[in-house]
């Protein structure tokens, strides 16, 4: 407990905790931009359907990472277990997804 208090104080001194809203607004901007990009890709009928699908999924993953890192503070120190467990959860979720794509109908 003691050690943690010191860590917090330490981080306060280095100005990490009282960071302003700037980072968050930037993250918001990126999110909005990625979303717009995805919607525009879908609205653009000239593009190949498969390409659009892959493209918008990549955008979604990218946006998720941004939000996890900034808004959910995953980029901060001391988030080892959070990253480990969320990544494992994502791994299992992706496995289930692959199952649904390849092995349910044949």
């Amino acid at each position: 407990m003691e050690a943690n208090q010191e860590q917090v104080q330490d981080r306060v001194k280095r100005g990490r905790i009282h960071e302003g809203p700037r980072n968050h607004i930037i993250a918001f901007g990126i999110s909005i931009f990625l979303t717009l990009l995805a919607f525009m890709a879908v609205a653009n009928s000239a593009l190949d359907a498969t390409f659009i699908k892959i493209f918008i999924v990549i955008l979604a993953v990218f946006q998720a990472v941004i939000q996890l890192a900034f808004w959910m503070h995953m980029k901060d120190r001391g988030h080892f277990f959070q990253i480990l467990f969320l990544a494992t959860g994502a791994f299992v979720a992706i496995t289930a997804f692959i199952m649904a794509v390849y092995w349910v109908w044949w």
């Binding site: 969320l86 959860g89 299992v92 979720a93 992706i94 289930a96």
Partner: peptide, 11 residues
């Protein structure tokens, strides 16, 4: 855990 829950729903 919720990630897996939603993963299954998505799947």
């Amino acid at each position: 855990g919720e990630t897996v829950l939603f993963g299954t729903l998505f799947a």
